[in-house]
């Protein structure tokens, strides 16, 4: 039986898709179009008129050492966030999967951090690592390590990576656990009887069979690290020290709203859009081939 609904006219179907189209148009196409348009102009200091410069904004950006540095920062930051949040989540999911008793409690507790908004998570971690009042910073001091992410760029990076990964671990954990539980028990048992011990089974059977989940999470987490970590960066480091944590999306904000260079900011959003689009295409084209569905 054909389950698709057939309409006689075009009016009703058009009315049904209109809300979704309107939302997409207003909140996506319009701003994206605006960004592309704005990226071609340089407004004057008072915002009274703007001058058409063509690709001038882009040329300036690509020659700007700060902008290039931001690219590297973003690459480091998003790789670390993706790696940490997925790695820890997988580890926890494997443990939870082996658990027979009280796995429900364990699971519930692990999901909670996901409910915490990135900006709030940022503040929480900032408190713990605060140079003056932070508990963790104080204990590190007792151990002889002087923690100061306000001055030390690498420590700042570490802190924003931890804060960004933390809430994300819950999300990834849920997917990994579901993925693990979808693997037929008998396949694992067959591997055990074939002589494979736990880690051998994990790398030769479980991990390959989990690859659709892993791939999906990879794409989603990279996008997350590129965009949604703004709140964390803003609350913890504001991109500092010395731009050590200024990722591309933060620079869009900093240059546009703080520096009031709207042409450059718009050009940066366009570049960001293209970069994430390319990354996603690359992931689908090259990594998806290794996925076993």
């Amino acid at each position: 039986m054909d389950k698709r609904v057939t309409f006689r006219g075009w009016l009703l179907p058009a009315a049904l898709v209109l809300p979704q189209l309107a939302v997409t148009a207003v909140f996506f196409f319009y701003p994206a179009g605006q960004a592309v348009w704005q990226s071609l102009f340089i407004p004057d200091p008072f915002g009274l008129k703007s001058q058409f410069v063509g690709t001038g904004n882009f040329e300036f950006l690509l020659n700007d050492p700060f902008y290039r540095a931001s690219f590297v920062t973003t690459a480091v930051f998003s790789s670390l966030v993706t790696l940490v949040s997925m790695g820890v989540a997988l580890w926890l999911a494997v443990l939870a999967d082996r658990l027979i008793k009280s796995s429900g409690t364990y699971r519930t507790l692990l999901i909670w951090p996901y409910a915490v908004a990135p900006a709030v998570a940022g503040v929480l971690w900032l408190f713990m690592f605060s140079t003056r009042v932070g508990l963790v910073a104080w204990y590190l001091g007792l151990l002889g390590y002087e923690w100061n992410h306000v001055l030390n760029g690498e420590e700042a990076m570490a802190l924003v990576v931890i804060a960004s990964s933390w809430g994300r671990i819950s999300y990834n954990f849920l997917f990994f656990l579901a993925g693990l539980q979808a693997i037929p028990r008998s396949v694992i048992e067959a591997a055990a009887i074939d002589g494979a011990r736990f880690w051998k089974r994990f790398w030769t059977i479980v991990f390959p069979l989990l690859s659709p989940t892993t791939f999906f999470l990879l794409v989603v987490n990279v996008v997350y690290a590129f965009f949604e970590t703004f709140g964390v960066i803003h609350t913890i480091t504001s991109g500092g020290p010395q731009q050590a944590t200024t990722i591309l999306v933060y620079k869009v904000y900093a240059d546009g709203f703080v520096g009031q260079d709207q042409g450059s900011s718009a050009a940066q959003s366009v570049i960001l859009l293209v970069v994430v689009g390319l990354l996603t295409i690359i992931q689908f084209k090259y990594i998806e081939r290794k996925v076993h569905y």
Binding site: E189, A191, A192, I193, G195, R197, I205, L209, H292
Partner: peptide, 30 residues
């Protein structure tokens, strides 16, 4: 003794083949 140390082989009702491996690799795994 763990299953892997008992030196036995088992055939399951749902076959329990490794879906991501070729027939050769399935047989060669052990």
């Amino acid at each position: 003794t763990e299953p892997m140390d008992r030196d036995i082989a088992m055939v399951f009702q749902n076959y329990a083949l490794y879906p991501h491996m070729s027939v050769f690799d399935n047989m060669a795994y052990g």
